[in-house]
Simulated assay, not measured.
Amino acid sequence: MAPRTASFKLVLLGESAVGKSSLVLRFVRDEFSDFRESTIAAFLTQTVPLDDSTNIKFEIWDTVGYKSLAPIYFRNANAAVIVYDITQASFDKAKSWVRELQRQADPNIVIMLVGNKSDLKASRKVPRELAEQFAKDEELLFTEASAKTGDGVDGLFMSIAKKLPLAAPKTPGSSGVKVANTPKSEESQRACTC
């Protein structure tokens, strides 16, 4: 029997130039470029196998870093990835994105805090322990990753996939979860060795 595919809306949030688009392009296309223009908004999908019977299809909204537009993107989102750059003072901004989601998003949203550019350890400004403690206090998922090297990128999305409410998905439209049986050969499916 073909595995079912459950679709979930995921939004990427964070300040400009922290690497949101680079993370998602590494995940979806396994690509990286040092020279990327600022994103206005982009929509990409990626399907990963959760287990033998279920695939997770991420419907990823890569957003511009303007708070005024954010509610448009995270309406009906099942998950959010909030990105900061470990080499910049973008961590405080990431914390304010968390507060924004806690205030306006669905209370069951899965939130992952990601410290990007972990390959630049010599330029680190944000101690990992500080971010880990904040994530623990706020009951968020947390990891560091590098869009440049790919380190931790697949793992962060798989961590989110494992936390999504698969046990009793609601009807399409009520929670953003859509379930369908999909053949394993689906073109966008990608094996994740996390």
Rank of each mutant, 00 (worst) to 15 (best):
A77Q: 08
Y73H: 10
V11I: 13
Q102Y: 01
R36I: 14
S22H: 07
L44R: 05
K20C: 03
R36N: 12
I40V: 14
Y66L: 05
V114I: 14
G150K: 10
R124L: 08
T182N: 08
L141M: 10
L113V: 05
V83M: 07
F43H: 12
G173F: 14
P3V: 04
A42H: 05
T47C: 05
K148Q: 15
T182R: 11
G152M: 07
L10A: 04
G19W: 03
K93P: 00
L44P: 04
P169S: 00
C194R: 09
Q46G: 07
E144N: 09
K9I: 07
R128K: 10
G152V: 07
W61V: 05
R75G: 01
L120W: 07
G65T: 01
I56Q: 05
P183Y: 01
E186K: 11
R75V: 01
S21T: 15
A2Q: 11
P172M: 08
I111Y: 01
P183T: 03
N181L: 12
V114C: 06
R29V: 04
Q88M: 14
Q102I: 00
I40M: 06
T45D: 09
V24T: 15
G14L: 02
F157T: 06
V11Q: 04
C194Y: 05
L164M: 11
K148T: 10
K125L: 14
Q46K: 15
I56C: 13
T45S: 12
L12D: 04
F35P: 00
R75M: 03
A77R: 03
K95G: 02
P172A: 02
K121I: 09
F43N: 13
V18I: 13
I109A: 07
P169I: 00
V81E: 05
